[in-house]
Design a protein around this nucleic acid. Structure first.
Ligand SMILES: [Zn+2]
Ligand SMILES: [Zn+2]
Ligand SMILES: [Zn+2]
Ligand SMILES: [Zn+2]
Lengths: 133, 133
DNA sequence: TTAGATTATGTTATATTATAACATAATTGT
DNA sequence: ACAATTATGTTATAATATAACATAATCTAA
């Protein structure tokens, strides 16, 4: 039998996967309330935390928002691009970047546990739209 | 004559510089209220935005907090390390990292305007403390 | 120098994001 | 079944951030 915990995780992941754009915790909450009007913020924050821990979703720190992971080729750390125009988000594998990063901080004795690498900018589509006016 | 705007910026920057650790906007607000009890959140958020735009301060997206810039060798983009144990923050010049990053996303057509690169982990001091127990 | 336009600041209220605290329910191990 | 543990529900509130608009300062050009 699937536990309640797992049911929430599946429901939230499906909502995130169905969205073209990052969703705030309260966006997800709104969707969940269609089926279950009494659900409260802690439930959704807990569920999002589990999903992020497992790598099934990512939290975008610069947006306070969440996406479903759509690129399982990375263990933990992805490079994430965020279009400021249309909100589209993509993930890239970051192995090389992490290598260079560890060189940059090599002499400091800092032991990295988690990377946040988010690039804000303009995606290909929006760039073309802008120049074609 | 120094404008009101500049006075706030100087005051906020001094507060950030005096702090060993990142401060939330409301931390800064609390300090400013010692001298000026009626100051309100928008003033401090505006001032922090100006300082961040000018590169005199950085916003740490993964902490919702701010630091004074203490490494003017970077134009815009720094690599920032954040110790989860003691809260200490350091900045590193990111030129190489940015180069590799642009390779990673080269084929996507994404034009990067702003980098958020924040490493969560354990600083040298806290690492030694942990292993010496 | 002053009227009008523009920009910056102050002020009030409120929106958004997130968690504390504790009660209840489910699950686990014996 | 029972106690111990973990997960969930629930209420309230904390923490972060901005909208909206009033007021004040600054700038520009007659
Ligand atoms: Zn991913
Ligand atoms: Zn776009
Ligand atoms: Zn800096
Ligand atoms: Zn430390």
């Amino acid at each position: 039998m699937r536990s309640r915990k797992e049911k929430w995780q599946v429901a939230v992941l499906e909502i995130l996967q169905a969205s073209e754009k990052p969703m705030s915790a309260y966006d997800v909450l709104g969707e969940l309330r269609n089926a279950n009007p009494r659900i409260a913020p802690p439930t959704i924050y807990r569920t999002l935390s589990y999903l992020v821990e497992k790598g099934r979703a990512h939290r975008l720190e610069s947006l306070n928002a969440y996406i479903a992971c759509k690129n399982h080729k990375h263990d933990k750390s992805a490079v994430i691009t965020i279009c400021e125009d249309c909100g589209a988000v993509d993930e890239y594998v970051a192995t090389d970047v992490l290598k260079v990063l560890s060189n940059v901080i090599a002499h400091s004795g800092f032991a990295t546990l988690r990377h946040v690498i988010e690039l804000q900018g303009v995606c290909e589509n929006c760039g073309f739209e802008q120049t074609s006016v």
